[in-house]
């Protein structure tokens, strides 16, 4: 019996907890991609860099606060700097729209043209980020590292397996829940939010109803900027901030958005968790877990791992391929054309 409990704790510690935190981060990223897609109708390849930009601004403000001796006690100081990061990133999104995307929107360019344009934006942002903060790895989390540690857990329960939850993981979940709840309240209950959904659903009819497209687009970028800054910061806090990782995050983020149905916010969240859990489930070595469940003293040979962690990006890709082959509109039927 105790072995089974140990096995469950083991899985929780190494699989459920990290995957949940990662899922929250991906969901926030995918929400940004899906909102841009729903309202502006193109896949924004610059979204990864937008996240990195938001994280960078948050880091800069965190340093400033730390330099002035301001901290948040057990919580990371970055939390205090986050609103500034969100504001600056939202401003950046509005500016890029003004300077870059608006022209193509007004000339009703093909979506693929906007995609190429977003590659240009990606380059510029990538360069700016490296120029300002450099390409190196930045760890910017402070405060208490753990909500509770393996040792605490073992002392409470007397189990031989431990469970630890990092502050940054808790933060990812809490912040994501708050943000998603606020977003859905906005989309479902407010007039502006409903007009955004209406615009995304049927642009021509929205125009006929007197909805101002520029306002919808501006609100969308504002939200996307905030979401990207939060997603980037949470990811950076939980792992570490390395500018080039955000380009490779594009794949799981797009996979999450497509799995859920591009343009569908609820789908993006579910997609984020599907991708995160599949990634961790398939790359986790089950050797110790099976040893607990099997007969006394037995251990499987090998790691019992479906896929080496080196291939975690392949997981998002395979999910993507399955969805494209089976149901190209995604689980929640986003747009396919």
């Amino acid at each position: 019996m105790e072995d089974i409990v140990n096995a469950v704790v083991l899985l929780t510690n190494f699989l459920v907890v990290p995957a949940t935190a990662y899922g929250c981060q991906l969901a926030l990223g995918a929400l940004g991609v899906t909102l841009v897609y729903g309202v502006l109708r193109f896949s924004n390849f610059a979204h990864g860099e937008t996240m990195a930009f938001g994280a960078m601004v948050t880091i800069l403000f965190t340093w400033l606060l730390q330099y002035q001796g301001v901290t948040l006690g057990p919580l990371p100081t970055a939390l205090l700097a986050l609103p500034a990061g969100m504001a600056v990133t939202a401003g950046l999104c509005l500016l890029t729209d003004r300077w870059v995307f608006r022209f193509y929107r007004r000339s009703r360019a093909q979506p693929v043209m906007l995609l190429v344009v977003s590659v240009g934006v990606m380059f510029v942002l990538n360069g700016i980020i490296r120029f300002v903060i450099g390409p190196a790895d930045r760890v910017f989390t402070d405060g208490a590292r753990f909500l509770f540690t393996v040792r605490d857990f073992k002392a409470w329960t007397g189990l031989s397996e431990g469970l630890a939850i990092k502050t940054t993981q808790t933060l990812s979940v809490v912040v994501a829940i708050i943000l998603v709840a606020a977003l859905f309240w906005f989309l479902e209950k407010t007039r502006t939010g409903k007009s955004m959904r209406a615009f995304s659903d049927n642009e021509d009819l929205a125009l006929l109803s007197g909805i101002n497209p520029e306002r919808v687009v501006a609100v969308t970028w504002l939200i996307v900027g905030c979401l990207a800054a939060v997603a980037g910061t949470l990811y950076g806090l939980d792992k570490s901030f390395k500018p080039f990782t955000f380009l490779s995050l594009l794949l799981p983020i797009f996979a999450a958005a497509i799995v859920g149905g591009l343009g569908n916010p609820l789908g993006a969240i579910v997609g984020g968790f599907v991708v995160a859990f599949s990634e961790v489930l398939l790359t986790y070595p089950y050797r110790k877990f099976l040893a607990y469940l099997g007969p006394e003293g037995w251990r499987p040979d090998g790691l019992v791992q479906f896929l080496s962690t080196d291939y975690k990006f392949a997981v998002s890709f395979f999910i993507l391929v399955v969805v494209l082959l089976v149901k190209p509109t995604g689980i929640f039927s986003g747009r396919s054309s």
Binding site: F45, P111, L251, I258, F313, L324
Partner: peptide, 25 residues
Amino acid sequence: KISLGLRADYLAIATLGISEIIVAF
């Protein structure tokens, strides 16, 4: 085979994924 015939964006994302996997491999 997988991604053509669907939206143009899907090809972009699928090829992005394939190239990441090839390089990882």
